[in-house]
């Protein structure tokens, strides 16, 4: 299991896409840390490190994440099923372990990215209060969004289809928020519970996103265990 986790993480961190993403994240952190001085780092709940600056930065990441997750990990299962390289693993390790390692790698990758970005901003602003609460909420959102990408990668036939589903979600999530702002009704109020931003703002209990994540993961594992490779 650790071998698969290591392989997935190394191949992601070494990829050109990852280097581009890392540069973008560092640039965004640099701009936020150095030039957005109107956003305070010290306001809000100083003990948990929450601040307007980090709320804005994390919101941007959460909006972009469905797209980034689909770009980075869209092929994590779909590609290996398509080129049949998964056939080297199936006889020697259980499907459950394969999928769990891959899902873990996806989450570690994004947690590291968020951590790098946060640390970078703190260093630039010479502030040493880590936004612990916001970071913890973001981890739940990362788990949720990566579960969606993993589920798409299992159920869709190609990496391109997973990427397209990422684009759809990238448009769908802010679209629902906008719809809710313009014309609130029971449908978009219910749909609010699937939006990651709802949890980042603390408008809904984290328990809902945990239940949603568990359900998507269960669905992914179930479908993968039934999938013919």
């Amino acid at each position: 299991m650790i071998a698969i986790l290591k392989k997935e993480l190394l191949s992601q961190f070494r990829s050109k896409r990852s280097i581009v993403l890392l540069i973008l994240i560092i640039l965004l952190s640099l701009i936020a840390g150095k030039y957005s001085l109107s956003l305070s780092i010290s306001q809000g709940n100083s003990s948990s490190g929450s601040s307007p600056l980090f709320t804005v930065i994390f919101s941007i990441y959460i909006i972009l994440m469905p797209l980034i997750s689909a770009i980075m990990f869209g092929g994590i299962v779909a590609r290996e099923v398509k080129d049949q390289s998964l056939r080297y693993l199936i006889p020697i390790i259980s499907r459950r372990k394969i999928l769990f390692s891959k899902y873990l790698a996806m989450n570690i990758y994004f947690i590291v990215l968020f951590f790098i970005s946060t640390s970078f901003i703190l260093l630039l602003r010479q502030s040493y209060i880590f936004p612990l609460k916001l970071f913890a909420i973001s981890i739940f959102i990362i788990l949720y969004l990566n579960a969606i990408t993993l589920c798409c990668s299992i159920n869709l036939s190609s990496e391109r289809s997973v990427f397209l589903s990422g684009v759809v979600l990238f448009i769908f999530f802010p679209g629902i928020t906008l719809w809710n702002l313009i014309k609130p009704n029971i449908i978009n109020k219910t749909l609010n519970f699937v939006l990651p931003s709802t949890y980042l703002d603390g408008k809904a209990s984290l328990l809902i996103i945990i239940v949603l994540t568990i359900f998507i993961i269960w669905l992914s594992f179930y479908n993968f265990s039934k999938r013919e490779i």
Partner: peptide, 29 residues
Amino acid sequence: STVSVMPDADSLFEDMTGKQFLKYILEIK
């Protein structure tokens, strides 16, 4: 019990070197 199967040669992890692939499979096994 344990079954070893040789899939099609074209389904190797092509972005890996032989050494990386070997280490990967050996670590799992």
